[in-house]
Design a protein around this nucleic acid. Structure first.
Lengths: 230, 230
DNA sequence: TCTTTTTCTGACCGTATGGTCAGGTTGAGG
DNA sequence: CCTCAACCTGACCATACGGTCAGAAAAAGA
């Protein structure tokens, strides 16, 4: 389990732990700055300041600005995919899609900055994660579309275009992160616990009814869906 | 109708027309570059090249990068608001919301770059259009929410949270612009005429059914202004 | 303690950017 | 044809940026 240095010496805890902690600090600061300013608007100096480290130190951990950015994007993509799994093993659309909406909205809430970075990346033509779109994401999408088609065939939901349904799920949930600022302005302040519950309920209600599924009138408890923290 | 210079001389066509044309060229180029690179990543040189003009000339028409950016954002906001009007004078949710979805999706298609700039602006905390959010947009939203509440009271649709419904409309339609690249990858190429029709149909179908309105299975012709409904 | 490796950082560098400006060009009015 | 304001632009400038590097400091092993 111990990693080794180039010279074969085992890394023991102290140093490795510190390294991990610093990388984490930098990644978090970078995520914030990239989310707030975009890749082009972000500067290594700003990230360094927010991380409380000298700029040169960032370059010790991440060779270039782009490498750091890539790390941030890959991180949020992993979280994004982890949430996808809640759609597996679902008996039908009510549980599967309902749980997926909950999970994605939780991500919009807990990882708003990461979501923004992801959105920004895709919006600008996915310069660094094009390959992910063409492989992992495409496969995932095809798989879920197949599941939805099966549900339709089994009469568990109305016939809709599965791809466009998926886009709608992404859009409706992602919106609460990407346009969070706009929503907060209209809401007159940050969303409260109750507001978030209303958001989840509304999205689930409209979409589930929209695909011909009873929107589970019995309110469920706030799911202890473990937020896929890294 | 003729405008006048500071010295009172009337501007006749030739010069004014050229000015308009140049401004238009610059704005269009700027919209593209801002959409592709973000505010921070865009450079005046890039915009100038795309517009086919020397960089110094941009600064003759728009004093600063930020002024140019602001002009681009205000432009798309005007389009955005214009689309909003289709929701007026609608007898009920089927026409009003259906038409709004059509209009917003058409904007995502025809003004994808502008939509991206808008999204980017809001995502980064609306540094230049905060006031619009707090005035025009807030008023508009309150007005439409009231209309939706009236429709609910009149039994024309199921009871849903009007704000969250609006967010969902924005999200589902805006997504086709902002995440257009992702959609194209998954679609295996740009959306065809048929794809766009499917998108419109899917979004309308799911949302309208989701709010308890018959998604009008019989394709209607473009409605005359006064539908026979009360 | 001494040696080696990793970690850290102030100072520095080449480049690209937003913006300026002096001076040239154009075209409308007289 | 002349005048003058509007229009245009190459050359230039100060700054800020991403990135480098020599060498100090700290930790680990022997």
């Amino acid at each position: 389990m111990n990693e080794t240095t180039a010279s074969g010496r085992p890394k023991n805890g102290r140093r490795t732990a510190n390294r991990k902690a610093n990388e984490e600090t930098i990644l978090k600061a970078a995520e914030t700055v990239f989310a707030e300013a975009g890749f082009g608007g972000a500067t290594m100096q700003l990230i360094a300041d927010m991380a409380g480290l000298p700029k040169a130190n960032l370059h010790y951990y991440f060779a270039t600005k782009e490498a750091l950015y890539r790390a941030v994007v890959e991180r949020i993509f992993r979280i994004w995919l982890a949430a996808a799994n809640v759609m597996d093993d679902a008996a039908g659309p009510a549980e599967g899609i309902g749980a997926y909406i909950d999970a994605k909205l939780e991500i919009s809430r807990r990882h708003a900055n990461g979501s923004k970075v992801w959105a920004s990346e895709v919006m600008h033509g996915a310069p660094v994660i094009q390959d992910y779109l063409e492989t992992t994401l495409r496969d995932w999408t095809a798989g879920r579309a197949a599941v939805i088609r099966r549900w339709i065939a089994e009469g568990k939901m109305v016939e809709v275009n599965p791809e466009h349904l998926l886009y709608m799920l992404w859009a409706a949930t992602q919106h609460y992160a990407d346009f969070g600022h706009q929503i907060e302005v209209l809401n007159g302040g940050p969303l409260s616990e109750k507001d978030w519950a209303a958001a989840k309920a509304s999205v689930k209600e409209i979409i589930l009814r929209g695909i011909g599924v009873d929107p589970a009138p019995s309110r469920r408890e706030p799911d202890p869906l473990n937020p896929p923290e890294t």
